[in-house]
């Protein structure tokens, strides 16, 4: 179990709801993932087609803690506006702060992200910033009072996995709030590695929604995350330069 602000969670898989090919697959993937937290985006309503199905119509929202993101924001002020729009729904008080600073790489803007967090904390939000894997930024955000840190494994949607396990490990070691590895996870082994390094959870979207079989991938990710966590808790042996025999060297006379 781990805690974000006042909320306690058992599932270490957070699932994004974007880019699923259809709502039934999305629903199946959500169920298979056993996620307790779902992310979504805030967008202008198409009032000319109000009957357009919405993903949230298919899901019993009361079973989940909703985590709106501020995707689309390029400044702190825009992020705060999106967060306030989401909160006005009365369905959520957590926010994933996502302020993109580079259209090409979709990497977050550290300065605007920091400012947005400062403003949102002052307004009483439960704040989860999506950041790069910058060790110092993670510490400074933590000192600011954010409720979790969400460093990216690699660029959003790239599926490249954890590009800098060293940075991630240092972020985790110095963390006083949950660390949720967000963005860039591709294979279940990437998710397992995040947990093995000591991350509290992983946020996935494209790795599941973009898989050939999203429902099965959601299941695979769930198991990988569980395995990674169990392994981390069990204590992984240190890597050594040389072979270390696992069979005893005494009583060898039987083969002499």
């Amino acid at each position: 179990m781990y805690q974000i602000g006042p909320y306690t969670f058992t599932s270490r898989l957070l699932l994004g709801t974007g880019k699923f090919s259809d709502f039934d697959i999305q629903k199946g993937a959500i169920e298979a993932s056993e996620a307790e937290i779902l992310t979504f985006a805030v967008r202008r309503m198409n009032i000319f087609e109000p009957s357009q199905p919405n993903l949230l119509d298919k899901i019993n929202l009361s079973n989940y803690r909703l985590l709106p993101n501020t995707a689309g924001a390029k400044t702190a002020e825009e992020a705060v506006r999106i967060a306030n729009l989401a909160k006005a729904s009365g369905l959520c008080d957590m926010v994933k702060v996502e302020v993109i600073g580079c259209d090409d790489t979709l990497l977050p803007d550290p300065l605007e992200t920091y400012r947005a967090c400062e403003m949102l904390l002052a307004e009483g939000f439960i704040v989860l910033p999506y950041t790069s894997d910058d060790v110092v930024l993670a510490r400074k955000l933590q000192e600011l009072g954010v409720h979790a840190i969400m460093p990216g494994a690699s660029p959003i949607g790239s599926g490249q996995g954890i590009l800098n396990p060293y940075n991630l490990q240092v972020i985790i070691e110095q963390a006083t709030v949950p660390v949720i590895v967000d963005a860039g996870i591709g294979a279940p082994s990437d998710a397992a590695l995040a947990l093995e390094l000591g991350a509290d959870a992983v946020l996935l979207n494209s790795a599941v929604s973009g898989a050939k079989n999203p429902v099965q991938m959601a299941e695979a990710m769930k198991l990988a995350i569980r395995a990674g966590r169990l392994g981390s808790e069990a204590g992984i042996i240190e890597k050594k330069e040389r072979a270390q025999a696992s069979s005893p060297s005494q009583g060898m006379s039987i083969v002499d």
């Binding site: 805030v42 309503m45 963005a183």
Partner: peptide, 10 residues
């Protein structure tokens, strides 16, 4: 008047 809703996102 601006009307917004929740859509899929990561």
């Amino acid at each position: 008047i601006e009307i917004v809703t929740f859509v899929g996102g990561g």
